[in-house]
Nucleic acid binder design. Structure first.
Length: 890
RNA sequence: GCAGGGGUCGCCAAGCCUGGUCAACGGCGCUGGGCUUAGGACCCAGUCUUAUAGAAGUUCGGGGGUUCGAAUCCCCUCCCCUGCACCA
């Protein structure tokens, strides 16, 4: 057995690719382009299997597209700013920059060892001023436009660490690092006005035809558009108006109380001076203490308290109590909810708990609701009752009618509400893009001068985990006001790292530009033709990136309004049925796999073991199978170092004709499968072809060699997108010039259905013969094969495309529909043999078998006699008897 | 609760859109054999049940329907995963 050192081969070709600068995107904008992009990784320093899968898929696409003549841009980059680096710095008493850069080097080395075909010239980590200065530049433009703005907002604040925490960093209401209780705090924060784009972001989802439905749905839900009505209520005996939002204005006559979110500003005025003020404030404090997660986790139990105040329902003059309840949230709608217990499940539950009245205003068509027996809210449609002039109206119609009535009487208006909220980009952290804003005592909030960019993160920060290090660096904070020139203070908040990833794909098209974030070059490259990454980014990153593209369009930088033409979300990598994770301890280190089996093996396994969008179950056995396959191909090429030449089909015999057919039909199927992201099918096809070519290669005849060469040539090319290193190596072994660069095209003239038919005959017979030979354990001297005319059913290949019409004919002839079940059986019996046999003349069939038999002569080196069973009466006795496979070995 | 995706012959996993080449691709595993001192590797065959068989039977979560014919279409139902979740 031949030994081959895959790791050595891989190193050799990685160097060759690098030396030849093979993957640099070309400047020629006349070429058809393809922009392949993977979601750039956070530089943790180590690749995990998820990365390897992501990149292997993208690389296969990029390589395939290059081979089919596209000018491909396949960039590399790192999402290099962010918390982990800062935490590492705190832990190791170092600084985030050197830690990050070190990690990038390690990660890049691993990516190189996988042989991904990046255009290395695009590499710009987002932590470099050359990149983040453009974050600042864009911020200034967005500030000018009013898209970036500052407002006071409640955030999670850790009093010990003196910093904001992301929701994910709050565990059970406590800081994940120091375990002290996190408090809600109002802080002045920077936002991007993504809500202004809510409608467009929603509408344009329909443009994204090649996005997974799942992702589009998730975004749609996240934006959460809901059309409804804003209704105003007057507080009894007070000069206060309450605004509420509802999608059910049709139930307005059924209101029996109203709830406020505890944080609602009006609440203070409402309870001021009332006898229960203290108690109510206590309740509010308790709710505020709970984290959002805690508050919503229970799900069922609703808590509230009566304010002592009443409001007036304008449609009927009812006076109803005003409550404060934890199930009302400040972030949605107006923070106040009109409660209709009879027709809303939450209101119903709350009303039952606090013994509030329930009033039915919608009756279903079939049965009548009775307040006394009502077990839960009725939320379906029906006809209005107890609703004055609207009685008898269908509730869907009433929604509109009542809203119009409210509008006419200035008691409300139709409105649209979104769940989407503005994007809070302020971070009280060091390792992010400094927000280019200056605070001047005289001029107020002043944007930094564009010419002063970049505002660079200062060195010498101390990372002690207490607050934002930037706040302690005087040289950074102190500056001059760009307007009046007086001493002023710099903003110390930095930007959320999602800002970096919201437009990096644009920077890649023009990453050396020092005048603008990107230039005209992007017009040629954008949109990203294929974006590939994990589904975990379905909302945040992908929504931000879409928003950013639109915002950049509105500040005149581009005409594009959707960045990613096709999105592909790959499945997770599992081990033992669960996600690979450190805590479970089932992580497989890609580095170890690469060292042991080589990058090509890892890539092949990952692409072969599951369809890319499905979950991938890691299997060591599977990896070994992939390795064996590569070894097998390598041996095949090593044994047959011949160059492909032109083929004259007429000179070929049946066997080689068959293999030639298979070669070209495989080219077609592999091409189709890659186009449809079915890499595992494509690879299975290549494997099947390899087996056939290998068998043919065992023959000594020159005739075969031509086809074997063609097969090898094809296999190398087809494998190149998946296992590029070994493909290059084999390409050079057969004397190929340069690098594997051309995708093969299936030649229809070579695809010979008859040849395939012959093969199926031979294959069937061969398996029988082989078995007998193996049973005997010795090479036979002579083999007799008796062929019954109806012998083989496997002539479907030739009948391809015909069965349906044939069946139709049969059905017509026998008027099957009327005969019923009997006919069904009849049709089936017809379909199984006679019908298809008619497609072929029996001579063809016979010839097919006969001409395929040279295989045996070669394989067993014995005499073969083919006896056609129907040649004469006497031969019928020699027809295959039960127990014999129609073959006699002498 | 809402939304999305699934349940296929030991395991992984195709097929379903466009119903009949489906007992159902491929990989793994297992069994037998060839080759070998042996093992590994490699090669061949088998791997739902019955059967001498190229035959038949019973299968694609469960139930029902449409059809001459259903893994595939329709309805109901059970189970699993994923996302969002007291969104008014």
């Amino acid at each position: 057995m031949i030994e081959f050192n895959l790791t050595q081969i891989e190193k050799k070709w990685q160097k060759a690719w690098k030396d030849n600068n093979l993957f640099k995107a070309k400047k020629d904008t006349n070429m058809k382009k393809f922009y392949a992009l993977e979601m750039f990784p956070y530089p943790s320093g180590k690749l995990h299997m998820g990365h390897v899968r992501n990149f292997s898929i993208t690389d296969a696409v990029a390589r395939y597209k290059r081979m089919t003549g596209y000018n491909v841009l396949y960039p590399i980059g790192y999402d290099a700013l962010g918390l982990p680096a800062e935490n590492a710095a705190i832990k190791n008493d170092s600084d985030p920059k050197s830690w990050t850069l070190k990690c990038i080097e390690m990660m890049k080395a691993q990516q190189e060892s996988m042989g991904f075909s990046y255009d290395m010239s695009t590499l710009t980590p987002t932590c470099m001023p050359e990149y983040y200065r453009w974050n600042q530049w864009i911020f200034l433009k967005l500030f000018e436009k009013g898209i970036a703005y500052k407002k006071v907002a409640p955030i999670n604040w850790c009093p010990d660490c003196k910093t904001v925490l992301a929701n994910e960093q709050v565990e059970d209401g406590k800081c994940w690092r120091c375990k002290s209780e996190v408090i809600k705090k109002d802080l002045s924060q920077w936002f991007f006005k993504i809500t202004e784009y809510a409608d467009e972001l929603l509408k344009d989802l329909s443009k994204l035809e090649d996005w997974p439905e799942k992702v589009k749905t998730m975004q749609k839900n996240w934006i959460g558009k809901s059309e409804g009505t804003e209704i105003y209520f007057k507080v009894k005996d007070m000069d206060l108006e309450i605004s509420t939002f509802t999608t059910r204005p049709d139930t307005i006559f059924g209101i029996t109380y109203l709830v406020f979110a505890p944080e609602h500003q009006i609440v203070k005025q409402l309870i001021k001076g009332t006898k229960d003020e203290k108690e109510i404030n206590k309740f509010i404090k308790e709710v505020a203490k709970k984290s959002t997660i805690e508050r919503t986790a229970e799900g069922k139990e609703k808590n509230g308290i009566f304010t002592g105040q009443y409001f007036i329902n304008p449609v009927n003059g009812d006076e109803c109590p005003i409550y404060i309840a934890d199930y009302a949230i400040m972030d949605y709608g107006t923070g106040a909810v009109m409660a209709v217990p009879a027709h809303d499940k939450r209101d119903f539950a709350f009303a039952k708990k606090y013994k509030l009245p329930v009033k039915v205003v919608i009756q279903p068509k079939d049965n009548k609701l009775d307040v006394k027996t009502l077990k839960d809210a009725y939320t379906d449609s029906g006809v209005l009752v107890n609703s004055a002039e609207f009685d008898g109206t269908n509730n869907e119609v009433a929604k509109d009618k009542i809203t119009k009535w409210l509008e006419k009487n200035k008691l409300g208006k139709s409105t649209v509400n979104y769940k989407l909220r503005d994007w809070l980009i302020s971070r009280q952290r060091y390792w992010g893009t400094p927000i280019p804003i200056i605070y001047c005592d005289d001029c107020g909030i002043v944007p930094a001068d564009e010419n002063d960019l970049p505002i660079v993160l200062p060195d010498g920060a101390k990372f002690d985990g207490k607050g934002n290090p930037l706040e302690k660096i005087e040289s950074f904070i102190n500056c001059k006001c760009p307007i009046c020139g007086k001493p002023a203070k710099r903003e110390t908040d930095t930007m959320d790292t999602f800002v970096d990833s919201s437009w990096y794909f644009l920077r890649y098209t023009d990453n050396k530009n020092d005048k603008l974030p990107f230039g005209d070059n992007h017009k040629y490259w954008m949109q990203v033709d294929q974006y590939i990454g994990g589904v975990e980014h379905a909302i945040l990153h992908l929504l931000y990136a879409r928003f950013f593209t639109k915002a950049l369009r509105d500040i005149g930088l581009t005409d594009i309004d959707e960045p990613f033409k096709r999105l592909f979300t790959q499945g997770m990598v599992l081990k033992d049925g669960v996600k690979m994770s450190k805590s479970i301890g089932n992580v497989v280190d890609p580095g170890i796999i690469i060292n042991k089996y080589g990058a090509d093996t890892a890539r092949l396994f990952i692409l072969f073991a599951a369809l890319p969008e499905k979950e991938l179950e890691w299997s060591d056995k599977g990896v070994e199978a992939s390795y064996r396959f590569l070894k097998k191909v390598y041996k095949l090429v090593d044994d047959n170092k011949i160059k492909a030449t032109k083929i004259d089909v007429d000179t070929l015999d049946a066997k080689s004709k068959y293999v030639l057919s298979l070669i070209h039909s495989t080219i077609n199927s592999v091409t189709e499968n890659i186009d449809n992201f079915r890499f595992s099918f494509a690879i299975a096809d290549i494997m099947a072809l390899t087996v056939e070519v290998q068998k043919l290669a065992l023959k000594a005849d020159k005739n075969y060699k031509i086809v074997v060469a063609e097969g090898i040539d094809t296999i190398i090319k087809l494998l190149a997108p998946f296992t590029p290193h070994i493909a290059e190596e084999m390409w050079s072994m057969v004397g190929g010039k340069g690098f594997v660069s051309e995708w093969p095209v299936g030649n229809e003239d070579y695809i010979d259905k008859k040849a395939i038919l012959m093969e199926t005959f031979v294959k069937d017979t061969a398996s029988d013969v082989r078995q007998i030979v193996q049973l005997i354990g010795k090479t036979p001297e002579s083999i007799n094969i008796y062929v019954a005319p109806e012998w083989k059913h496997k002539i479907y290949e030739l009948a391809k495309g015909k069965p349906k019409s044939l069946i139709a004919e049969v059905m017509k002839d026998t008027e099957m529909k009327e005969i019923g079940a009997e006919a069904s059986k009849y049709a089936q019996s017809l379909m199984k043999r006679p019908v298809f046999l008619d497609v072929l003349s029996s001579d063809d069939e016979y010839l097919a078998l006969a001409s395929g038999l040279d295989v045996f002569i070669d394989e067993f080196d014995c005499e073969i006699n083919v006896i056609r069973a129907d040649e004469s009466e006497s031969d019928k006795s020699k027809r295959a008897e039960p127990g014999k496979p129609g073959i006699e070995v002498l």
